Amino acid sequence: MKLSVIILNYNVQYFLQLCLQSVEAAISNIDAEIIVIDNNSKDESRLMVETHFPNVRWIQNTENVGFSKANNQAVKVAKGEYLCVLNPDTVIAEDTFTKLLEFAETKNNLGIVGCQLIDGKGQYLPESKRNVPTPKVALKKLLGNSDSYYANHLKKDEIGKVSIFVGAFMLLKQEVYSKVGGFDERYFMYGEDIDLSYKIEKAGFNNYYFGETTIIHFKGESTLKDKIYAKRFFGAMQIFYKSHFKSNVFTNVLVWLGIQVAKLISKRPKALNTVVNNYILISNKLVPKLQIALRESILVSKDINVFKSSTEYILDVNYLFFSDVIRLMRNSEQQKSVSFKILPKKSNFILGSQNSENRGEILHF
């Protein structure tokens, strides 16, 4: 088998449903499997998967064992030569895996391959490619200077070597994953992706950023920017520094400072959602001539004036390809007052996210 797609789920039934639809479309011509491992969700995720995705392998945990341990569990039963660790709050294009696997086959000594991530408003996520967060780099970021934290030597559409990738999407060979011991289970959540990326690079493999394919990462569903998140993140960084850097006063002070800042994060005002005055549905339920003109004008043009301000576009993937949805959202990047909802296939709800700090919105009809 060529590929095993591993998705860790925790109470995100509706986002998981959309994610699985996109993954199934992306593996239609690949010898691949999908494994969903669930950390004791209380919603109806399992019923949804059993009903709509009978070919998906489901692994049920009776408690929340965290990100690292759950993914390691799934890898133990994975049959693929390659693994893709994927978040459930993502949407991938039909050709994402094809492009990445073709690229991977051209490289020797390959580590992780990452790709371009955008959020639910089409905004590029700079954590798509990062440098090693040495204590000095982390301190600068903590003080508001993230230039050296992100891998800015590459433009977002380029291809090249990058050290660190985000756990929302990582493609790598299973033998490489196993050689470095997989995810370090001392990390419950956050930091394990940095650790794995760095372990693989230290083992002599080359990690690559492939900016010629893009996926959506709603992000707010799995990474809420609150006090608990911040404490866990800096706790994870403490593990990372103890594992990979010599302990000294500087690193200890850095982690202490990060935790103190974390206590203030919950007091920050939440990110505001875009004001929506108009709604536009892009679907085959529109008048044929109108729907074709609207779809083509927005997909092809990068002129931000094509997008109407204070407007939410509802994208029907019963009609649009997932690649259409991603390209449309990317083309809106400069128009901040535009937002999106996606209508999954054969469903009675739409979902989306207007910012990456708060949970997404799910509307039933």
Rank of each mutant, 00 (worst) to 15 (best):
M1C: 07
K2T: 10
L3N: 06
Y10N: 09
Q13D: 15
N29H: 07
N29W: 00
A32N: 08
R46T: 15
M48I: 11
V49S: 03
P54C: 04
F67V: 10
S68K: 05
I92A: 02
A93W: 00
D95Q: 11
E102F: 03
N109Q: 10
L117H: 13
G120I: 02
G120S: 05
K129I: 02
A138V: 00
L139C: 05
G144L: 03
N145S: 13
S146N: 12
N152G: 07
V162P: 07
E175P: 01
I200Y: 07
E201F: 07
G204T: 11
N206C: 12
G211N: 12
H217E: 11
L224C: 07
D226T: 07
D226W: 12
G235F: 03
I239V: 13
F245A: 02
K246D: 12
S247N: 14
N248M: 08
N248S: 14
F250W: 04
G258T: 04
P269D: 10
V276Y: 09
S283P: 05
K289L: 11
Q291C: 00
Q291A: 13
L294N: 08
F307T: 08
F307G: 00
K308R: 10
N318E: 13
L320H: 07
L320V: 04
I326T: 01
R327E: 12
R330A: 03
V338Y: 01
K346R: 09
N348V: 03
I350G: 00
